[in-house]
Structure formats: structure tokens, C-alpha cells
Write a protein that binds this DNA or RNA. Structure first.
Length: 258
DNA sequence: ATGGCTTACAACGTAAGA
């Protein structure tokens, strides 16, 4: 089974790139963030034509998450349980024998702001939810835009970013608390090159100079970690015309469909 | 690099992202 996550920063704009990427890489499951579409505008047919069933939770202008799957889908959960939140940032479902959770973690704007407090609160509620998901599902993958670079090696310039939002100690602690549930960062299960990132600021200079952060992640339960065969960032789409500022992150498991 | 983009909205500038 092959899964991937991609913050597309507007599915309306990026749909041609997403369908092209699906055709090339043929994942079984693709989690999307920042679709920025209300549900009535979700391009269900475009994905059905490629063999994907779409599950989505969107809103106007901001946020919005979706999961595409080539396999039958059940037990859909929209939103973080027990969290009062109008922002569409979480979607869970079961497909191909795997529990899939798609997350778009709040950005946090700046340390000390209301949005930063919301981010930490959101992560804590999500942690409690994922503890239950882990207890119920042997095969669990939690993937999406976490808006946290877990370690300095996930940052192009740790000195420049020190203490800022996306790398602050409290955010890293909240991310670590997710791993402490028993989840593994699939990317770190393997030898990786230096300076691999999943997001680069828009602008002509950032991507060519690889001034990026690794903030998009695939977390896996112990059983899935044992079945994980690869995890990598596909920087290809970031070099296209009108790219998303995020690149897809893909992982492959020996379980289920080839 | 402290944003030099990009997106949506229905506004021709503002908010938000990371």
C-alpha cells in the first residue's frame, strides 16, 4: 500500500497538478490539506475518473481537508472529537485495512498570539483523540501538514528560525507528545539525505536555494512502522509552474495492495 | 530572507499562510 500527503494550497488552482501526480505515482491513498473549497465545489468526478473515492471536509477560503482512496472507505470522522472548532482541519477514515487520519495543524502565526494558543490547544485535543485511535486500530497512519519542524535538522537555518513559530519549544514538545503515544515519524525510519524539506516560502529564491522546513509528516503506528518500506519527499511538483508551497510526502507499506 | 509570493474575496486592498 502506498500513501501520501500534500498541502495543495487551493485544490481549485492545483487540481491539474494533483491529477497528474496521482497518475504518475498511483498512491492508494492521498491526503490533501488546504483545499479551500466548500464541499459543493469538491471535484469528485475528476478523482472518480482516476479511480479514487473522495472524502472531504471543506469550507470557504481557508483550511479544508480531503482523503482520496482507490479502496472502499468506511467509518468517516470529520473534525477532532470533543473540540469546538469551525475550521475544517481533520478527517479520518478506514480504507484498505488501515485507519487514515488527515491533519491540517494550525499555523500558529507567531509565538504568543491567540492563534499560537489555538494551535497548542488543537494539538493537545488531537493527541487525546489519536491515543484512542491507536488503541482501536493496529494499523494507523496520521499524515498531513503539522506545521512543526520537529528538529533542527528539519530546518534550513536553525539560527534564523530559533524560537519562531513552527520550531518553538512548545510546538516541538506537542509534536513529540504525538510520537510518545507510540507513533513513528516514517521519514526517520530510513537513512535520508541532509536538508530534506517539504515546504519552501514562495518567491524565486527559496526553493532553488533549498531554504525550507520539513513540516509535512507521515506518522505510523508500531505495526505499520514494521511494514513501512520507504518514505520520501517528492520535490518535483514544487518546481512546476504555479506550485503549491508544499511538496508531497509519500510512504510505502508491505501490507495490503502492492 | 522577517518576506522579496500566493491565495481568496468581490475588495482593485486586506488577511492569512509558514
Amino acid at each position: 500500500m502506498k500513501v501520501a500527503t500534500w498541502n495543495v494550497n487551493s485544490l481549485r488552482v492545483r487540481l491539474p497538478q494533483v491529477t497528474e501526480w496521482l497518475g504518475t505515482h498511483q498512491p492508494d491513498v492521498l491526503a490533501l490539506q488546504e483545499t479551500k473549497l466548500t464541499d459543493d465545489l469538491f471535484p469528485v468526478e475528476a478523482f472518480a475518473a482516476l479511480g479514487y473515492e473522495a472524502t472531504y471536509a471543506g469550507q470557504k477560503t481557508y483550511n479544508g481537508v480531503a482523503v482520496l482512496s482507490r479502496l472502499p472507505v468506511s467509518d468517516v470522522q470529520s473534525g477532532v472529537p470533543d473540540l469546538q472548532d469551525d475550521q475544517r482541519r481533520a478527517l479520518a477514515l478506514t480504507t484498505g485495512g488501515v485507519r487514515v487520519v488527515c491533519l491540517y495543524v494550525p499555523n500558529g502565526q507567531a509565538v504568543g498570539t491567540d492563534k499560537y494558543a489555538y494551535k497548542l490547544d488543537w494539538l493537545e485535543h488531537t493527541r487525546r483523540w489519536l491515543a484512542r485511535e491507536l488503541a482501536e486500530h493496529e494499523r494507523l497512519v496520521v499524515m498531513g501538514d503539522f506545521n512543526v519542524a520537529p528538529e533542527d535538522r528539519d530546518v534550513h537555518s536553525p539560527q534564523r528560525w530559533a524560537g519562531q513559530v513552527l520550531v518553538s519549544p512548545a510546538e516541538r514538545q506537542a509534536f513529540r507528545a504525538l510520537l510518545d503515544l507510540g507513533l513513528s515519524d516514517a521519514f526517520r525510519l530510513f537513512e535520508q539525505p541532509e536538508k530534506v524539506f517539504s515546504w519552501w516560502n514562495y518567491g524565486a529564491l527559496a526553493f532553488p536555494r533549498n531554504w525550507g522546513l520539513r513540516i509535512d509528516h507521515v506518522l505510523v503506528s508500531p505495526t505499520l512502522a514494521g511494514e513501512c518500506r520507504s518514505c520520501h519527499v517528492d520535490t518535483g511538483p514544487r518546481g512546476h509552474e504555479r506550485p503549491s508551497d508544499h511538496a508531497p510526502v509519500a510512504a510505502e507499506f508491505s501490507t495490503g495492495p502492492a
